[in-house]
Simulated scan of single mutants.
Amino acid sequence: MPRRSYDHYCAVSRALDIVGDRWNLLIVRELCSGPRRYSDLFADLPGISTDVLAARLKELERDDILTRNKVGPRAATAVYELTSAGAALRPALDALSSWGTEHLGERRPTDAVRAHWFALPLGRAVAQVLPQGTATVHIGETTLHYVITENGITHHDGPAVASDLELRLDLPTATEVATGARVLPTPDSSAV
């Protein structure tokens, strides 16, 4: 399918030509914490059809936002991973997350939710408690870790090898912290 374009000689327009299609930035969000299989992406993007997911992955690969690698026995499984150009979108996602947090409102009965979708706003909350270092955060069955440096915050799947801070949150607490309704509980605080 030919690429649609705004045909504006503008940096925002060019960026949206590449990542502005529906689902593209959510696919990038899913890949921010590490490589994912197609089935993982499909499971964590409720509402996307298999045809749309396949098309978006091909477009993002064509545009050098992600790569597709074969892994496993006989290289039977495809794993998608952000390229350096894709990873460079993280600050834009973080800014959208910050702006969007103010517009979340109450969760609607039709809203899907995944614990790792709170990774970006939780990262900002973790950085307020731990300005530099590594933190592991458990949200129910989901575990991710943050690396916080003077260059910013990144999050990754699974626990850190060595953590300066380890937190266990349930999903309601993670939601409240992510939306700013609650301060991040730390191991030495009484709020949990």
Rank of each mutant, 00 (worst) to 15 (best):
D111S: 11
L89P: 01
S98C: 08
L104S: 10
P91F: 03
A85W: 03
S97A: 15
L96K: 02
R107Q: 08
L82C: 04
A115V: 10
T101E: 12
S98Y: 07
A92K: 03
R107E: 02
D94Y: 03
T83Q: 03
A115I: 08
H103G: 00
R107G: 00
W99C: 11
R108I: 04
T110G: 01
L93D: 02
A85R: 14
T110M: 02
D111Y: 09
A115D: 05
G105A: 07
V113E: 15
E106Y: 07
S97N: 15
A85Y: 06
G86W: 05
T101A: 15
L93H: 02
V113N: 12
S97P: 07
W99Q: 10
A92S: 06
A115Q: 00
A112G: 08
A95F: 08
S98I: 07
W99K: 07
R90F: 02
L93M: 05
S98F: 13
S84A: 13
G100S: 12
S97D: 15
T83E: 04
A95S: 14
T101R: 15
A95M: 11
T83M: 03
S98D: 12
L93S: 02
D94T: 09
L89F: 11
R90S: 02
G86C: 05
S84C: 01
A85F: 04
G86F: 07
G100E: 03
S98V: 10
V113D: 13
P91K: 08
D94A: 13
E102G: 14
R90G: 00
P109E: 07
D111A: 12
L82P: 00
S97L: 09
L96G: 04
A85H: 10
H103K: 12
R108M: 06
S98R: 14
A87L: 13
E106P: 08
A95H: 11
G86H: 07
S97G: 15
R107I: 09
A115L: 06
T110C: 02
L89I: 10
E106S: 14
H103E: 10
S97F: 10
R90H: 09
Y80K: 03
L89N: 01
L82N: 01
G86E: 06
R90D: 04
R90Q: 11
H103T: 03
E81K: 05
Y80M: 04
L82G: 01
E81P: 00
R90L: 13
T101D: 09
S98M: 08
S97H: 13
A87K: 10
